[in-house]
Design a protein around this nucleic acid. Structure first.
Length: 362
DNA sequence: TCTGGGGTCCTAGGACCC
DNA sequence: TCTGGGGTCCTAGGACCC
């Protein structure tokens, strides 16, 4: 952890599509849809990336591919290519790390938080955008603030046009006060609805709430956390330490439903072996095994068991997964199976929560 | 609109022990 | 024999995010 003066949130523009267009320049300016195998008629796939040209047709990521294809018939359809995105992401992050006075915390393929001690964050933001474009051919936006959550929100405004946007105590309430609570990063549709039931519809209303009321309704952590977010506060610790995963999972939605018990078990065993192989390749050990089942009606349930002894043995993980599977009814057609391995923490006792803690009442 | 895949973390309740 | 309280471990479920 490093103490920093400013926090910049960097977000690559339409990352997946941008990577595809970068290697196929002839696609520039065309509606591009990336997802699944690239077959627009394949059922049970969704859009992973949509170019701005495609979004004009009402297409967005997460939308079923066949729906997107109907809305945007002239789109170019491409298969998802995770290794290419992973490689492009490394380029972006290495570019960021090459700048002066930065601590880079990677948040995903296309996002990073940059901590800096500079007194001129806007200049650094411009530098970041120029460096990423020059170094990778990808454009990005930057949100500036003094904590991660607010910087992330700022990036949303940067995307709307200026490319860089700063949110501080000065402009937080004027800009955000009248917006709905789910404009806050970490407040989704469910929490927004629950907050509205308590009478808190806007960020300002939430900021003026009694935190004890929120804690009673949402629990001591979440209640305090929502209130803090509304005040524009958040976590300001930036670390360049690589992320240590807590779990690894594999899930598959099958093109047609599974009904045969043997077949279901075979898939679970295969998923368990694949997951374990990856875990072991990374030098980690499994301590808990979870199985997810989603029926054709989309009813989804997860069950899990802690192993009596942590293991790196794929057959132990597979056997445990089958035991967990056995606790399901399995009397309905199944569209998805998943196996999750929860991992022994790398450092003994390193099970601390990474969820940002609410600060004391100011 | 017949709805992917990979994650993280909080909350609640039951079991068990002192 | 009855009762209260606290702590810890485990599992299920939910919410959110990229």
């Amino acid at each position: 952890m490093t103490h920093v003066a400013w926090i910049l949130h960097v977000d690559v523009d339409q990352f997946i599509c941008a990577v595809e267009v970068r290697r196929r320049p002839e696609l520039r300016g065309r509606p591009v849809l990336v997802g699944g195998t690239g077959d627009p008629n394949q059922p049970r796939t969704v859009v992973a990336g949509a170019s701005y040209e495609a979004r004009k047709f009402g297409v967005h990521s997460g939308m079923p591919m066949r729906t997107a294809a109907r809305k945007c018939r002239d789109a170019v359809f491409l298969a998802k290519d995770d290794p290419a995105y992973e490689a492009a992401s490394v380029e972006v992050m290495d570019t960021l790390r090459g700048l002066d006075d930065v601590v880079v915390e990677v948040w995903g393929w296309d996002e990073a938080v940059v901590g800096t001690t500079t007194a001129r964050p806007e200049e650094l933001a411009a530098e970041i955008r120029a460096a990423v474009l020059a170094g990778t051919g990808l454009s990005c936006c930057v949100g500036i603030s003094d904590n991660k959550q607010r910087a992330k929100v700022a990036t949303g405004f940067a995307k709307a046009g200026p490319g860089v946007y700063t949110l501080t105590d000065e402009n937080w309430m004027p800009v955000m006060g009248d917006r709905p609570t789910d404009a806050l990063w970490g407040v989704g549709p469910k929490s927004a609805r629950n907050l509205a039931e308590l009478g808190f519809h806007t960020v300002r209303e939430l900021a003026m709430a009694d935190p004890d009321v929120l804690k009673r309704r949402f629990g001591p952590v979440m209640g305090g956390w929502f209130w803090m977010l509304a005040l524009g506060r958040g976590d300001n610790q930036v670390t360049a330490e690589p992320w240590v995963p807590r779990s690894r999972s594999k899930q598959v939605t099958y093109p047609t439903d599974l009904t045969d018990r043997d077949e279901i078990e075979q898939h679970v065993v295969q998923l368990a072996r694949e997951v374990t192989a990856e875990v072991v390749a990374e030098g980690r050990t499994v301590e808990r095994v979870g199985v997810t089942v989603r029926t054709a009606s989309f009813f989804t349930r997860t069950k899990a068991s802690k192993l009596p002894q942590a293991t790196t043995d794929a057959e132990v993980v597979a056997r445990t997964a089958l035991e967990v599977l056995d606790r399901f009814e399995l009397d309905r057609p199944i569209r998805l199976l998943g196996v999750r391995a929860e991992l022994v923490p790398l450092l003994p006792g390193d099970d601390r929560s990474l969820f940002p803690r609410p600060v004391d009442n100011p």
